[in-house]
Design a protein around this nucleic acid. Structure first.
Lengths: 134, 134
DNA sequence: CGGTATCCCGGCCGATACTG
DNA sequence: CAGTATCGGCCGGGATACCG
């Protein structure tokens, strides 16, 4: 019955444990949940988008960061890049199967947080009131 | 009664749209998905933990970052801090109801990424091989 | 044990300019 | 349109020292 001798260590026997500093899964998680990665995946979950469409959708992202973010996500196999050698050039980005599965779980989290922001905001007011101006 | 809207319009006209730069939900999402926030919530989902227990569980986190992370999460109403005025002092951290709901969705994402790391890793090899040494 | 205060460096990130 | 290159500021975050 007993699988491991660990106590309170739920993810101990996974090969890619994000809780350990050295594991590559931590880097990938950071790409996915990072400031721009999360929003980019969220935007692409609605369907294929071009570079500047993405840029407009993800409010506040710079060209450079969007470019870097897309490269990281493409490298991790979450986003597919399709370039057409036309003039003017046209490049479409879309989620891979793996990317869709990740984005689905990410959006579940994002929508939940959005839906509970009033609770978060009132919690903040209570915290700040207690601590004075900290 | 209470269910998640995993289905339907991803860009729903919610009052707190994370895609707009000015929305406070973006900050909260960053606390939740941030480098240390995500791992801290993940660790606490297993149950109540003390400060140094958390520090050991979240491999690589410094005292300062853990402290800051916990404060942000407490302020957002996701973590409850219980200090006992004993000597030596004992402080326990545990998720609130809201925190557990968030952590549940977060862990779904984390475990999924962990479980698919082999696909991510081979995608990376393919990408790097194509681009040479970029 | 459970933090806070200070110093300081690397790299995230925005702005700008340039290319195909 | 779809990027890349370069510069520079700012701040995330690690190391260390110190308090209750």
């Amino acid at each position: 019955m007993e699988t491991t001798d660990t106590e309170g260590d739920a993810t101990a026997d996974l090969p890619y444990d994000v809780f350990s500093r050295a594991c590559p899964s931590r880097r990938t998680l950071e790409h996915v949940t990072g400031r721009w990665g999360a929003l980019t995946l969220g935007a692409l979950s609605e369907g294929s988008l071009r570079f500047n469409e993405l840029r407009r959708r993800v409010d506040g992202v710079s060209e450079k960061m969007l470019s870097q973010t897309l490269q990281a996500l493409e490298r991790d196999g979450l986003v597919h890049r399709e370039a057409q050698p036309t003039n003017p050039p046209r490049v479409d980005y879309e989620l891979t199967g793996l990317g869709r599965a990740v984005a689905e779980r990410l959006l579940s989290l994002i929508h939940f947080v959005e839906g509970r922001m009033d609770e978060v905001l009132s919690a903040r007011e209570r915290y700040d009131a207690t601590r004075g101006g900290r």
